[in-house]
């Protein structure tokens, strides 16, 4: 006979965060958000420099096409998403996220396609050259990347 499973234990917990935050004082939500945004803005130039270096590395990998590069490309795309996710640069973020999706899908399906990576690298380069601004041309570019991910990249 198997032992009956332990019944769930449910506890009311008041965390130390709740106690500390309940103390008098503090700043308004708007003020806190503004301060945090200013803090992020102070890193902007450095982050854009890092993003540019990573896109250059991506382009270099596309030119060399080393074997078994899937995990390297995914790590690079993921790092781009990680950093771009802190700044207000939606076109760049969307393109980097799309590269993550494409790489993830291709790795899972074992259908690696360098052209699918190259089109993303090209888009990221153009977006950076356009100071990460949006616009009709960038929208078309992003729609193209979306289509690549949606239809699943052909092997190549």
């Amino acid at each position: 006979m198997t032992a009956a499973p332990e019944p769930p234990r449910i506890r009311k917990v008041r965390t130390s965060l709740q106690r500390q935050m309940a103390r008098p004082g503090g700043i308004t939500i708007d003020e806190a958000v503004e301060r945090a945004e200013q803090g992020l803005e102070s890193h902007r130039d450095r982050i854009m420099g890092i993003l540019q270096a990573q896109v250059d590395l991506l382009n270099s990998l596309c030119r060399r096409r080393p074997p078994k590069a899937d995990s390297k490309i995914y790590a690079l795309a993921s790092a781009l998403v990680d950093l771009a996710g802190f700044l207000e640069i939606p076109p760049f973020y969307t393109a980097a996220y799309s590269l993550c999706e494409a790489t993830h899908q291709m790795t899972a399906a074992k259908t690696w396609s360098w052209p699918a990576v190259e089109v993303h690298a090209h888009a990221l380069t153009l977006i950076l050259a356009n100071d990460c601004n949006g616009g009709e041309a960038i929208d078309h570019l992003l729609a193209g990347l979306h289509a690549v991910v949606q239809r699943g990249a052909p092997a190549g």
Binding site: P5, E6, P8, R9, I10, R11, K12, V13, R14, T15, L17, Q18, Q20, M21, A22
Partner: peptide, 12 residues
């Protein structure tokens, strides 16, 4: 998190 409590659940 600071303003609202959630029960802490322990099951296997």
């Amino acid at each position: 998190l600071g303003a609202h409590s959630r029960d802490f659940v322990e099951v296997e």
